[in-house]
Amino acid sequence: MQPAPSVIIFSTLSGAGFGLLFFLGIGFPVVSGGVAFVFYLIAFGLAVGGLLASVFHLGNKKNAWKSFSQWRTSWLSREGWFAVVGLLVMGLYAFLQVFFDTTVFTLGFTGAALSLATVFATSMIYAQLRTIPRWNQPATPGFFLSASLAGGALLSGNVTTAVIFLIILGAITVFHWWKGDQRFAEAGSTIETATQLKGRVSLWEKPHTGQNYLTHEMIFHVARKHAVKLRVIAILAMSVVPVVLLVLFPVHHVLAAIAVLSYLAGVFVQRWLFFAEAEHVVGLYYGAHARA
């Protein structure tokens, strides 16, 4: 799949933002006044900024509001509802903390649950697609949620929790890569099932000499040797470096900032790979994914 920068930025930043809102919502930490203002500025900046970035990849932005209508069937629609209601609830919770030094946990817990639900809905947009076997596995929601919780714990200063979630994130991500490499074969789609022709089938002539929307969007090839290097970079930056910094050194603002930046860089690389390595079955009609 084509790794569109807008969607990668969206899922990385908003994931961390909603993770931070989750921890603020459940009261770890309970904040008020100026400190609360800075925390919520970061959280809403990341969450809303990410959501805005995702609007940029729409072909027809004026109809974006209609995406709230199909919550009964569409994960993308549910994501919209969870995000907007979650941000409104957390907005009210934040307003009371910042200006009235009042913490209403009913609001906080509701907002925290909606924040996590948003991240889960985002992950299900990808995990539901049978056409992309690498995404169509339970570990997909697993790493979206663990990435969000790790980022949230890191940003909210819950050091021990952050270390635990960063380790879980690393483990789930490695599992997702390992399982993902087998998923296309497990799904069982081949050029023979795609064409229903008997014998050894290969593409003889494409429908057209140039590219089209499908080949551009869904048949993106990443060099395998780069993929392995990028996986190593992702796991080091996203999980190993922040854990080492948090465990080996005393807690300090500069150190925490380095850990957060390393985490974000790692998640960017991991999300890029999430798209770049995903093989869509339609590629079979274009001669992609040929067996050796």
Partner: peptide, 28 residues
């Protein structure tokens, strides 16, 4: 097309490549 926002998710969901987003109109 009056309700399509051009997110492209339906084209991702189709195994057959039957849907194409028009690059001028931005609708599926």
């Amino acid at each position: 097309e009056d309700a399509c926002m051009g997110c492209g998710l339906c084209a991702w969901a189709c195994p057959y490549g039957a849907r194409e987003m028009d690059q001028a109109a931005g609708v599926m």
